[in-house]
Amino acid sequence: MPGKSRRDFLKSSALIGAGVAGISTTAKAGPDNILSEDRMGVLVDTTVCVGCRNCEWACKDAHNLPAGNLESYEDRKVLDTKRRPDHTALTVVNEYASGKNSNLPVDVKVQCMHCDHPACVSACIVGAFSKHENGAVTWDTDMCIGCRYCMAACPFQIPAFEYEKALNPMIMKCDFCIDRTKEGKVPACVSICPVEALTYGTRTELVKIARDRIKRNPDRYVDHIFGEYEVGGTSWMYLANKEFTELDFPKLGEKPAPGVSESIQHGIFAYFVPPVSLYALLGGIMWISKRRKELDEEIK
């Protein structure tokens, strides 16, 4: 399809769908999926992180996952291999070779970035995902049908799936400790971090702080706040003393992951109109081709 992107195609087909279904795109608009000026975020300063992995323990502990005892996290052999967050560990710390002006290795905590324009929210066909006013991106397990579109859509490959569970497998990812923050607490990882490498605050304030740190310590940091602009901005942002691509961060543009289709898509799927019309269309095509075949055979 030269000159026409996948996004354009989605846009136009969604518009047609909306027209067919005659559904208002704002039908589901509520307090969710809006960007608040005071939304919270976390600034991860990887030049400060010591790689103690206490955050991994605290996260499991806060989410009722098997965590083991805290002392077992002192084993640094774990850091020899690069790990990804999964359904058993919603956050992991990876270690990389030292960056500029430092003898120390760089430790990078990985978890959901809680995008300002989340692709998972956009991709979820049942609208189970939502962006909350406080910045968190969460999902409703009861609504989830297990299609794993969120996993495919996420630019950071974060949502994980409980593959080994035969019954009711669930999508799992960092939920920004939404239960804790509702109670006025800080997220579990932020709370336990011994060096406060994770700073919890409003995103606006954190961007200011991050810029200030780079300005005042140009020898300590590369001049880049990862997450300030990537995919339209993320709630979690990073500072580092080496290029982010060397720390396994994906190279991303500043355009948000597709977000236009989100409410339209939800509306359509809520009434099952496109599936029905799609099957009708497919049935029609099948009938026509079958008929053609029969005609061809008759001619022979």
């Binding site: 010591v50 790689g51 120390l104 971090c193 011994p194």
Partner: peptide, 24 residues
């Protein structure tokens, strides 16, 4: 840790930053 001005580390962070960089 939950405070208005988060531009400088809290006490726990400040203590550990002094010790842990050299120790590790």
């Amino acid at each position: 840790r939950k405070r208005d001005d988060v531009s400088i580390p809290d006490l726990k962070g400040a203590y550990h930053r002094q010790c842990m960089d050299c120790h590790r």
